[in-house]
């Protein structure tokens, strides 16, 4: 009480010290330097991971009509093939369409599931979580056969809807995981604060929850997109002459036609996926620098 009275006329301490806006400090660097041998190991592992992907890029500029390494000559012939042949273009278009729709569906379902399961700890919640995650551990061929058999019955084989439904299922776990981890840093008190300020639950979701977990949602959506985009096993079962995706066309081009255009299409895919990952990185750093 006495302290309180004495403090009336003095300016509170925190007003004095915080005149300038303070930015949160960047990640602190460790004290120990990284040893040279560890740097070499890291470089080797890194190369091991990216070399196979990089091989395909020089090959895509080859003039040869069959597969050869090292590539011979230099031309844009294969790219010309890729971007002028209807089969390639059509399958690229199909892949993008399927991946977009599947990612959208997986994102909605995965986000809703993550939000719903976040506060639940019971046995039922754990069961639901496991069920949603199951497609990550099930061998693709098992899912493919199951999907094929049931979709035959429902006349979904070879249709856009069939691809989207099947690919959404394998995309959901990625969204569920990334949104759940984003929710880990989300203070549930904010929901109560928002309600006390007069916002109904759906407004709270739009104005508070979603902006704060957007990184998890975007990450999950991109993973779901990429997963669908390069999915080949289920797509092989669902293909029809009317509708097939790019990975299936690539598979055909090697096994049936021995067409080196695949080098160009692979490069396109590699670059597209790399760009997506860079976007993801960018989203991440922009958020953090706040």
């Amino acid at each position: 009480m006495t302290t309180a009275l004495r403090d009336t006329d003095t300016e509170p301490a925190e007003v004095r010290t915080a005149r300038r806006p303070r930015r949160p400090r960047r990640r602190e660097r460790g004290v120990d330097p990284i040893p040279w041998w560890l740097r070499i190991v890291v470089a080797l592992v890194g190369l091991y991971f990216i070399l196979p992907t990089l091989f395909v890029i020089p090959m895509s500029f080859s003039t040869a009509t069959t597969f050869q390494f090292p590539p011979k000559g230099f031309s844009f012939q294969l790219y010309e093939n890729f971007f002028t042949h209807k089969v390639w273009l059509q399958s690229l278009r199909n892949s993008v369409l399927v991946a977009l729709l599947a990612a959208l569906l997986a994102t909605v379902v995965g986000t809703a599931a993550a939000l719903g399961l976040h506060h639940l700890t019971g046995r039922l919640a754990r069961l639901v979580r496991t069920l949603l995650m199951i497609s990550i551990v099930t061998p693709a061929i098992v899912i493919a056969v199951a999907v094929y058999i049931s979709f035959l019955k429902w006349h979904l084989v070879g249709s856009l809807g069939g691809y989207v439904l099947a690919h959404a299922v394998i995309g959901v776990p990625f969204v569920l995981v990334s949104v759940t981890s984003a929710l880990g840093g989300f203070d549930p008190k904010l929901l109560r604060a928002s309600a006390s300020l007069g916002a109904p639950p759906w407004r709270t979701f739009l104005r508070v929850t979603m902006p704060l977990i957007s990184r998890g949602i975007v990450t999950g959506a991109i993973f779901a997109f990429v997963t669908s985009f390069d999915e080949v096993v289920i797509a092989l079962f669902l293909r029809s002459p009317r509708f097939q995706t790019l990975p299936v066309q690539m598979y055909n081009s090697v096994t049936v036609e021995i067409d080196p255009t695949i080098a160009a299409s692979s490069s396109v895919v590699v670059i597209a996926v790399t760009v997506l990952c860079l976007v993801l990185q960018f989203v991440g750093t922009r958020r953090k620098s706040r």
């Binding site: 904010l190 006390s196 300020l197 007069g198 916002a199 109904p200 704060l212």
Partner: peptide, 30 residues
Amino acid sequence: LPSHKRNLGMLFQNYALFPHMTVAQNVAYP
């Protein structure tokens, strides 16, 4: 009556400010 219709202000121990909004945006929220 659900909480958002009771028209009661609430203060929490950990402040519960919306971290993605500025001071002005936080105060303008209600």
